[in-house]
């Protein structure tokens, strides 16, 4: 074999820089695409918000028209609806999801886990219209039968959305519980703590940053979900007076009206999208803050 020189190879160098360039290009275009979307939404929505003023957020009368002066532009009930629906779904989905994750990570025998984990991950890929349809033909009539009213309601949205965010919460939480060092668990058990005490006082706190991350992602999915909510929420622009009353969300309202909207109405929908974007940023920020506080 020939003696290898220590001289750098031009070809290899070029290959390296090319790969680096391609990666850079990918990263830059991904980020650019996101900023492009943000810029687009804000450039369409911001002028409207400035024109409509704070009443856009505080007024409860939503009567959109193509011309600004003929319409009433209050999205307060829709904004509140989005928050109610999201937090309710998180409130139901988190304990259920974490309980499932604990079961999968700590209790289920390996054979059960091998079947359940892929099935749960597959659930994350089911299109939302399927969940919505399930809600429409199963949950909504059931609620109407049990509690009266339309059936399409806050409660129906909670049920469907919490089911939809379960796969996200379960799979990420399961991973983070399984990633807790075994030493913690052994340390706790070796002191005579029961399995439940160990899970509650050591495993879940140690996995909390992952669990919180899963809830943040779930929240993102819940607040951004459109089709399924559209099908089961009832989409009434008014603040629901009970959990069995219909409700509208920012996403559903945008989707409902986008097809027809022109002029000021169209701008108003972009403004709603902008509000949604800001709300998501705030919620994610708060959640991140909370998770950073918890980790000692």
């Amino acid at each position: 074999m020939a003696v290898r020189t220590l001289k750098r190879s031009r070809i290899k160098d070029a290959k390296g820089t090319t790969i680096e360039l391609i990666l850079l290009l990918c990263a830059v275009s991904a980020v650019a695409a996101i900023f492009l979307i943000i810029w687009f939404i804000f450039s369409e929505g911001l002028p409207f918000v400035l024109e409509a003023g704070p009443q856009f957020l505080t007024s409860s009368i939503w009567l959109p028209t193509d011309s600004f002066s003929d319409g009433s532009w209050g999205i307060f009930p829709i904004l509140v609806g989005s928050l109610i629906v999201t937090f309710g779904a998180i409130g139901i989905g988190t304990p259920l999801g974490v309980a499932c994750a604990v079961f999968l990570a700590e209790i289920a025998p390996p054979a059960v886990r091998r079947v359940l984990v892929p099935s749960i991950n597959a659930l994350a890929g089911v299109p939302s219209v399927v969940y919505g349809f399930f809600g429409l033909v199963v949950i909504v009539p059931w609620i109407r039968g049990q509690f009266g009213g339309f059936g399409t309601s806050v409660f129906a949205s909670w049920v469907i959305l919490s089911i939809m965010i379960l796969p996200t919460i379960i799979s990420i939480s399961t991973d983070s519980i399984r990633a807790v060092p075994r030493e913690y668990k052994e340390g706790s058990l070796a002191m005579g703590a029961t399995q439940w005490q160990t899970i509650r006082s050591v495993m879940i706190p140690a996995a909390s940053s992952g669990i919180i991350a899963s809830v943040i992602l779930g929240m993102g999915r819940a607040i951004g979900e459109t089709m399924a909510v559209l099908m089961v929420a009832g989409n009434a622009v008014s603040i629901p007076n009970s959990i069995f009353a219909p409700v509208s969300t920012l996403t559903a309202q945008i989707a409902l009206e986008m097809g027809y909207a022109a002029g000021a109405h169209r701008q108003a929908l972009f403004a709603m999208g902008m509000v949604l974007f800001v709300v998501i940023m705030i919620l994610t920020g708060l959640a991140n803050l909370a998770s950073r506080r918890r980790v000692t």
């Binding site: 030493e183 913690y184 340390g187 706790s188 070796a190 002191m191 050591v202 706190p205």
Partner: peptide
């Protein structure tokens, strides 16, 4: 509880010093 174990690799919980020691009595 009566026969306790100390492991090769120190394994304090990711909690405060106080909470580590108080863990056993609490449970």
């Amino acid at each position: 509880k009566e026969i306790g174990m100390v492991f090769q690799k120190p394994n304090p919980f990711p909690k405060s010093i106080y909470d580590n020691v108080a863990y056993g009595p609490r449970v």
